[in-house]
Structures are given as C-alpha cells and as structure tokens.
C-alpha cells in the first residue's frame, strides 16, 4: 500500500526546481515576455550556485549566487529583446544553447567535488523548499495586490496602453526578465546543491522546458503554478513510486498525461474567455510581442 502522505512529501521536494523556475517565468510572461531560455538560466544558476557554495562552504550563499548568476545571464536576453528588439522565441532558444555551453565550459574545474551539506529546515524539509512555497503567496500578492504588480500586468496585457499611461515598458520587462532569471537560477541550484550535491554539465536535463509547460498549465496564476509544479512533479514521483512498489505502469503514456492536461486546461480557459467574453484569465495580451514606442 502506498502512503499518500509520503508521496506528497516526495513530490513537494521533487517539484521545487520547476516551481522556482515556473514562478519566475510566470512573472516574465505576465509582463508580456516569452523567455524560452529557462533551461539556460537554470543551468547557469546550478553552476554559479554550486561554485559559490563550494567556495564559501555555505549552501545559502550558493543560492544567493545562483540568483545572481541566473539574473546575469537573463540580462543578455533582456538586452536582445528589450534594447535590440530581437525576436523573443529565437533569443530564448539561443539563450538556452549559450547557457548550457557556458556552464559546461566554466564548470570544468568543479567536476567531482561534493557540495557542502545543508541543514534541514522545519519538519526535516529543506529551507529552500519552504522558500519556494513561500514565494507562491508572495508572487500572488505582488501580481494581484501591489501597485508594481498592477503596472507589470498592464505592460503585459497591452504595452501600447501602458506606454501611453507613461509606464516604462522596457524597464518593467527588463526587471521582470531579471527576476525570472534569478528564480530559474535558484531552481537550478536546488538540483546541484540540494539534490545531486555535485556539478555535472547538462544536469538540469530539461527541467526548464517543464517549467515553461507549467506556466501555461497555471493559467498565469501563482496558485496555478504551484498546482502545475505538483502535477508535473507528481506524475514523475507517482510513476516511480508505483514502480518501486512493483506495480507495472505505462511510463511513456503516463508522462505524456500532464502535457495533454495542460493543453486541455489552456483550451478550456481560452474557450471560456472567447465564448463568454469575460476579461482576465488566459495568456497575457502582449505575450511574445516586442514593443517599440513610436513617440
């Protein structure tokens, strides 16, 4: 018999890297920017975090450095898309390629070293897991209750209108991108510092791409991101848990399910918006489009 509580506790920890990355990407997309470079920013954070944790012996300094590293590399994307007005999809893909290469290059001296161990937080659960959970209400509050969040959403929904109201569209988006980079960096570092305790190139192994799917699943809400991270993480944990218990599972088909669920959620929300003409929900109005002020 599988104890649901144990599965739940497993998935909360397992979902942490994708939760961080997806929460960051949520803010980015809410500002109207589609950054497909999450994987590149995660690996940058995994490396810079590991390097700092190793150098200082303090994992928490590592996570701080991961945030800085992720944000730093995301600024390349910000430069391309906000200053040089390059296409976001292509720039994001290039960022992933660049980030994976750069991290592999700079990570060579760190191979085979073990990360300093971390003290567990309350209930024996890592502090970073708790931080990830705490970010959910914080980001919800920021997006829905704060003035800055209102501006950010305005920029994402209709950049022309936001500009007309005098808000600095590029600056807001740049800040959102940097925040997204920092969050992705922390998510990546959770893999290197807290999960594997070593640096190996390519170690994020596609987690950034899952984070992108989670944001869509979330319907661009913080609570939705949490649900999505738990669903995506949960399906993996559950199928592995079932296997461990000796139950035969169709792994490939099961791992397809969350993506199909994401499409269904997206369709349902889009349809509700289309047919009832209700405002809100679904993708931000200016998602993926660059802005250039004509005046």
């Amino acid at each position: 018999m599988i104890d649901p509580l144990s599965v739940f506790l497993l998935l909360v920890a397992a979902a942490t890297p994708i939760l961080f990355a997806a929460l960051g990407e949520l803010v980015v997309e809410r500002a109207g920017v589609l950054n497909l470079g999450v994987e590149g920013m995660m690996i940058a954070g995994a490396l810079s975090g590991f390097a700092a944790a190793h150098a200082t012996g303090n994992p928490f300094v590592g996570f701080l450095a991961a945030a800085v590293g992720g944000a730093a590399i995301s600024l390349l994307f910000a430069l391309l898309t906000q200053v040089l007005l390059a296409n976001q999809v292509a720039s994001g893909l290039a960022l992933t390629l660049f980030g994976l290469g750069l991290a592999a290059l700079f990570g060579k001296p760190l191979e085979g070293i073990k990360a300093p161990s971390m003290t567990a937080g309350p209930l024996g659960i890592s502090w970073i897991v708790w931080l990830g959970l705490a970010m959910v209400p914080l980001i919800w509050w920021f997006l829905n209750r704060s003035r800055a969040g209102l501006i950010l959403r305005g920029v994402g929904e209709n950049h022309d209108a936001a500009h007309a109201l005098g808000y600095p569209v590029h600056l807001v988006r740049g800040a959102a991108i940097a925040f997204g980079g920092a969050m992705a960096g922390v998510g990546g570092a959770f893999i290197s510092i807290a999960t594997v305790l070593q640096w190996t190139e390519g170690m994020t192994a596609g987690a950034g791409w899952i984070a992108l799917a989670i944001v869509v699943f979330s319907n661009w809400t913080a609570v939705g991101v949490l649900a999505g991270a738990w669903l995506f993480g949960g399906v993996t944990v559950l199928q592995l848990r079932l296997q461990a218990a000796g139950i035969k599972v169709p792994v490939q088909l099961l791992s397809m399910a969350p993506y199909l669920a994401t499409i269904i959620v997206l369709v349902l929300i889009s349809a509700r918006q289309k047919f009832s003409r209700r405002a809100g929900g679904a993708a931000p109005g200016s998602l993926g489009q660059n802005f250039h002020a004509l005046r």
Partner: peptide
C-alpha cells in the same frame, strides 16, 4: 525493488527514483 528511470543521466529524476525506493523501505 526495481525502478526504471528511462535515462542514463537525469539527476532530478534519479533523485526522485531514489526517494521512491527509500519510501518503499529500501
């Protein structure tokens, strides 16, 4: 107890697989 990761190298998934086994009392 056997768990298949369907990967030669995927740290996050390998960690999850280990956790699943540990939860099974391994």
């Amino acid at each position: 107890k056997v768990v298949w990761a369907y990967s030669w190298f995927d740290p996050a998934k390998e960690a999850d697989a280990a956790s699943a086994l540990l939860a099974e009392g391994v």
